[in-house]
Nucleic acid binder design. Structure first.
Lengths: 204, 204, 204, 204
DNA sequence: TATGAATGAGAATTCATTCAT
DNA sequence: GATGAATGAATTCTCATTCAT
């Protein structure tokens, strides 16, 4: 059997399935999700779903594959020639936007990390590390040039990731503690984070 | 029928079970964990485990119950009369220590958040919110007193939580990107975080 | 190990257990009943119960053994020399009293019959058949003597048993259809049954 | 999502399952019956059975639902304008036929009554009571018209039910005491019951 | 005697996947 | 492509019984 290129209906149905699967997987985790639930959410019979993705695992992998590229875009966009503070601010802004607009993707990724990244480990060690190495070097350049306080650029990247994704992954906690379910929390978060990261806590 | 006080062997076995369950639940999530796996890890037959905790749910709840107190201690320890920068630094240090020494607890909690906190929601809205409100007020006091840059104290707390717990929850990613599995990453993290939070990125 | 005669405490505890077991078995059936439930009802630990009756089966058998004698007493009491109509009336009265006063025993027996009498079959074919044969002969004598209408005496005995025990076994239905949970139904039943059996439905 | 109408194979398999379940439930009771046993009797795998009836409870309910209508038909058929004695005789005949031809249905119902009618209670208090009220009124009419001896019509109905169903529910006892497993017992029963009920025991 | 602890054998139900059409 | 039907392998939980003290 040769790998033919997908027909239009295949493309469409795979997209429908992925959309449904993202919802279910991000909410229930890999083990908690059932093919039934995904098929239901996709408005499709279970065998039909498995016609497009032979196994539950395949659906999950397919989601993860598209994920990192999307999610690391803001990091990739750092402009070595831009103003460092502005670049960092923009980075934060874009990450908060992602947390607001694509929380399920973030939670899917977080779930995979909690499990020890059984699927994504190769990508972490490979593509992602390569990307982070490159961008850390850019940030390091800014520090060496005296534009940023010297520190470990990797941990800086981690910190920005952690704080921004927190608003997607721990949304339920954030809402509970702020007692606010409106979207304002994202703007407030972006503002606070930019103050913290760029200015620091100490008054000058 | 009264609830009798537990015998010594009960206390011991419940502790053994909880230790095993923490390992399994934190790695596999609630749904991914099986009573079989927990019983195995506890070196105990499945029915015997269920003799101590009637349902899988009970084991999980029991773990979560003890969690928050342990985990929020560093926040609780903020001394309103201490030096704000030092207090924040100590807070960060202690949180990083927890991430290093009790990563499974952190991941268990993170898993519960990702699921939407079906069990812990009441605690979030109740006890935890009350605690955070109190400590946010302390931080707010420091800001009003001109000791810290004014910003939303809740988001500051979130930021510290997110960045420190990141080293437990996303450990697999951190290790992959640092290409370092030694414990050094925790010290480096603490140092970087203290620099970021207290000094900010911009050179003075 | 020799079979010693039971101590006082043994006698007492066996009685307690049987009382509790009757309640549980008659309500839940043999399979539906659990040793736990019986032990609870007896205010005793499960292993202790099983000290007195080695198996669940033994408890059940023990109950059934005492049953038939108790339950067939009214039939045994038929006096061949008494007035047939009065004897039948007395038989009905006593059976209705048993249904009122010992409904659990009746239901236990009914449950055993529904199951096909796995335990009691030998007794049915043996002792019980012998007794019924004897008493049927007495009734047959009355018929032959022209004191009762000739008919099959066995089916007459069955009819009296069935109608009287109905008020124990189908109590829930009787109460529902009469919309009456007071004890009046037993007196009304006895009266109606005596009318039916002795007089017949047709006016004379 | 709408409930679609069943396919032919669904109809067939549901019928097969119900037939098998009737056998098992009527013999072993609800608790004593296992899904395994029913699936075996139905020549079907356990999960496949549960594909048609999601739970054991559903199978049981399904059986009970169809039961009462079938079982109360002879009572419903009483013709107010017919000859009372003939009507009663016909009622008895039809009930004995049911006991002979559908003993498992009778035992299933009896088992449910013994348990206290957890499932059927609503029906007893509702539909069945309504039916019995109506037919009791018919019988009462006959009595008021002087065609039957005055007595409580409810208890008369109970008596006919009890005596006829006895030949299904207590079949094992009847066979043991008659020492006869041929079908003759049903004819003998019908004859004896008609004599008892219509004529009474006393010679005229 | 009495009971806390332990377990092997179920029992109901779930679920990913396959079959057949 | 699509779906109703079917199933083997779990998975949670139950329960009669035994062990150890």
């Amino acid at each position: 059997m040769t790998t033919k290129k997908p027909t239009r209906i295949q493309t469409k149905n795979r997209a429908i399935i992925e959309r449904a699967a993202l919802e279910i997987f991000s909410r229930d985790g890999f083990r908690g999700a059932t093919v039934d639930a995904i098929a239901d959410a996709a408005g499709m019979s279970k065998p039909n779903l498995l016609y497009y993705f032979p196994t539950k695992d395949d659906v999950y992998r397919s989601l993860l594959e598209g994920l990192l590229q999307h999610w690391t875009a803001p990091l990739l966009d750092l402009d070595p020639d831009g103003d460092p503070a502005e670049q960092i601010s923009a980075f934060i802004d874009r990450k908060v936007e992602l947390a607001r607009d694509f929380p399920m993707e973030s939670r899917l990724f977080a779930g995979e990390m909690l499990r020890g990244a059984p699927i994504l480990n190769d990508v972490l060690v490979g593509d992602l590390k390569a990307l982070v190495d490159r961008q850390a070097a850019i940030i390091k350049g800014w520090m060496d040039g005296g534009h940023l306080k010297p520190m470990d650029p990797y941990h800086l990247i981690f910190a920005i990731w952690a704080t921004t994704q927190h608003y997607a992954d721990f949304d339920v906690q954030v809402c509970a503690l702020l007692n606010d379910k409106s979207d304002r929390r994202f703007d407030a978060a972006a503002e606070a984070l930019k103050t913290i990261f760029v200015e620091g806590l100490r008054p000058r």
